[in-house]
Design a protein around this nucleic acid. Sequence first.
DNA 1: GTCTATATGATGATAGAC
DNA 2: GTCTATCATCATATAGAC
Lengths: 199, 199
Amino acid sequence: MTIDNTKELPPEEARTRILNAAQTLFAAHGFNATTTKAIAEAAGVPGGLIFYYFPSKKALLASVLKERNVLIELSTVVETLRVSDPRTALMTLAVHYIESLRQHRELTAILLREFLSHREIAEQFHALREEHVALIASSIQKLLQGKCTSPAQQIQARARTFLYNLIVIGIIEEPPAPPHFIEEMVDILLGGLQLSVNA
Amino acid sequence: MTIDNTKELPPEEARTRILNAAQTLFAAHGFNATTTKAIAEAAGVPGGLIFYYFPSKKALLASVLKERNVLIELSTVVETLRVSDPRTALMTLAVHYIESLRQHRELTAILLREFLSHREIAEQFHALREEHVALIASSIQKLLQGKCTSPAQQIQARARTFLYNLIVIGIIEEPPAPPHFIEEMVDILLGGLQLSVNA
DNA sequence: GTCTATATGATGATAGAC
DNA sequence: GTCTATCATCATATAGAC
């Protein structure tokens, strides 16, 4: 029987604590405004130890973004759609997606902050967006199977409109807007489709 | 005959050059990553002069945001709607709004970067959003006068969906998405309304 | 109002003891 | 692997000559 090294908090894993602290502080104050000293203090380790695990502060940021990846979890949200009624399904998707964004607020904040200056991050952000548009579009298409005759491009546009709204709601909007806006938005998206709603 | 002091580049207005340089550099690299020295160099003035005109670097940022205000210009875009056909009007509004956002890319970049950490800026951003939702909603309502019987709240939701899409398209989306997406989005927004389109 | 020179403090990173 | 002490650099901001 081999030892499982993937526990949540391996006894003295200073590296993990540094990553956690960096993630929190980068998100709260931005990359440049966060000092390595502050990270070390928050992590409860001496300042020098950071540079034992990471060659530079920038490499630390890269590790945070790489090892704590938002992409995967957000994508799985889309997969959880096993409801027959399109309206309910889209509502579920929206709520879960926004919740997921809010749960990863720290990472999305980093993305939002740094994509403007770091080309690499911008491309990651862009790829993520397009991937999700495609995922949502195919989800909608499945949901409407047989119930609707709209062309594929219309569905894609709806998926994009949907996602863009979720992005603003989940990342930028603060405080949260009118309570029933999400519901209304879903209705708008489904409004133009020739649905045979009679479940 | 008095002298007009509101020319584009008043003979030696170092202050203006400092503001210009600060705006550009803050937008390109963020507030913290931009040094006052870099601003001075870009403006072609000695480093010390910045602190003659502005008490601190942060005050300089505040001045940039206050004196180069996006709010006004963006609001006027909405006013330019004097077309009878709703679809054409919304298309015009969308295109102009996005163009305006792109023209003020530097300022929107600063807003996007700093609203996460500076409470003041966040509130400014939020107020701007809500003001524009209201403006767009009332524009749509005027456009649909007599042609539609949808309740006010539905119109508001449409306006918000519209604006949120414009925000992502104008500020975040890069490179620009599928060419006809804006058109498709407008169609989606108008899709659910009981229009008597027969112009 | 403009410019030079510089104070003062903090930052990322290193060297080396344990 | 962990920690202390410290270096070299560069930041914002000031003092004061012109």
